[in-house]
Design a protein around this nucleic acid. Sequence first.
RNA 1: GCGGCCGUAGCUCAAUGGUAGAGCUCCAGUUUGUGGUACUGGCUGUUGCGGGUUCGAGUCCCGUCGGUCGCCCCA
Length: 407
Amino acid sequence: MALPGFRDFYPDDCAFRNAIFSKWREVAHRYGFVEYDGPPLEPLDLFTKKSGQEIVTQLYNFKDKGDREVALRPEMTPTLARLVTARHKDFKKPLKWFSIPQVFRYERQQKGRLREHYQFNCDIIGEAGLEADIELIALVIDTLRAFGLTEKDFVVRLSDRQFWTDFMNAKSIPEDQRYAFIQAIDKSEREPREKTAEKLGPLAAEVFAILDDASTGKSERLDTVETGLRHRGLQDYVKRDYTVVRGLAYYTGVVFEVFDRSGEFRAIAGGGRYDNLLKNLGDVDLPALGFGMGDVVLGEILKKNNSLKNLKKNNGIYVVIADENHRPKAMGLVQQLRDTFGLPVDYPLVPMKVGRQFQAAEDQGRKVAVIVDAETGKGQVVSVKNLASREQTIWSIEDLMKSEVLK
RNA sequence: GCGGCCGUAGCUCAAUGGUAGAGCUCCAGUUUGUGGUACUGGCUGUUGCGGGUUCGAGUCCCGUCGGUCGCCCCA
């Protein structure tokens, strides 16, 4: 039994996970992003430096045999920051980097939240202009579209962290009250309105007006982002919503969260601009932005929508050994097929009834069966059966190797 | 860390406090050279674990571990 919050991946699960990974990679590559990776285990202070000591309660951390305080990474951004600050002069800006790390957190698990998951991380570093924000948001949208999801399935809720900073400046909210103010906005959706109003005090009416009707809030940044997305035909995937504030730790500009329209699941993805983080962490002043998308919530949604079906598509070859006397010849053929086609080629490891062999071929999702029998023993002849159409034809091995019937 | 619900075969579940069962899966056969059906047979259990009540506990009580949903938290 796996530890609480950790998953086993049986072959079907692994196929499902890998299908998600390959879509992620495909879309990231389509956007010109390149893949990087880092260690799953990091010095503890890499994370406390960014998030403070409180984060330790949510980490898998321990002392290693060299007496170092270490932790399993809860997120990729600190590692990315380390990589980038260490060698930023080696790379032309902007960097468009992605990664699919397994990340960990020590928390009680619940729906859509385990103690580990794989998180697709895409970041753009070294570009302060809003074109980068638009590109990144377009990437989030296209990633989900690649799984067959549409504007009917999900929405990107767009907000602007700077908008609220400006608001608090205009209202002269003291520094020590700003955290509570942002928290109140963050929780306003999950709390009774009276409770939020109590927290906001005299500003309640004005804030509610903005939360209820996003057009009340003015943000040139969001105007530009929305226009940019409209140019790409993606305007139906986004909605301005100032309730999104994203934990507020280090975001500085445009932020966003992606939700499914049914409201049944947790956030699918989230991200935004964090222009000061690299400077604070690594003493390299580069603007940056990024998002993360986990495989758990996405997987739940794809399963509900029945996406990613047909993972066992018909391909490959099953060599049926109809006459055990010719097993040696069959083994030669198996080897030759593997060399020639690079497709899955399987066969019975031990003598098996012919009917069972066809069943095995079927269960494995093979496209064709190549039948080795007494005729094969006499000459270089095999029968080839298409498992779907059940048509069977006779081939010389020489012709078979040049043909397309097995592909 | 807190609370609700739930732990019985590999899976899904049944069994009034009275001898632990079914379906599916798996394996084999019906069928000694042709696959999704059908039929037949077979394997699998310290009823999560530990205490307690009782003549007797899968069933009731307590604890514990795990699952699940929510709260807290959300990098």
